[in-house]
């Protein structure tokens, strides 16, 4: 019970520093922005690299386009099916990372 008021007072101070964007408050937000942006850019580049690699491979090695997998042409499998689970998976992953970051940030402010 005794710990309760002191915790909320530091938490209040941290909030005020954030609200007024003191140098420390600004630094906190800048740091959060940097981390979130880095995650987003890395995951975005991952997907972009995979997607851009597909036509590049077709261009460099046209023979690949004639391969077949289980009777179906490989380019159609690569283009019509494969990208969608990839994009959904990366979306899920980013969501988890971003939510964890935000939870950590809130915990840091409130303690």
């Amino acid at each position: 019970m005794l710990a309760e008021p002191s915790r909320s007072s530091t938490s209040l101070r941290a909030r005020v520093e954030l609200e007024q964007q003191t140098s420390w408050g600004e630094l906190l937000i800048k740091d959060l922005v940097k981390v979130q942006l880095r995650t987003a850019v890395l995951l975005g580049l991952l997907v972009l690299a995979v997607l851009c690699a597909i036509p590049a491979v077709f261009y460099v090695a046209p023979a690949v386009t004639e391969l077949r997998l289980a009777g179906l042409p490989l380019p159609w499998l690569l283009l019509a099916v494969a990208p969608f689970p990839l994009m959904f998976g990366v979306g899920l992953w980013y969501n988890r990372l971003a939510e964890r970051r935000e939870r950590d940030f809130v915990n840091m402010i409130e303690n």
Partner: peptide, 19 residues
């Protein structure tokens, strides 16, 4: 096969939007 990029791009747009 070249038209298959449309559905990919239509979906990828939401990934960029989300990120």
């Amino acid at each position: 096969a070249d038209a298959l990029w449309f559905p990919i791009g239509f979906t990828a747009g939401f990934l960029a939007l989300m990120l």
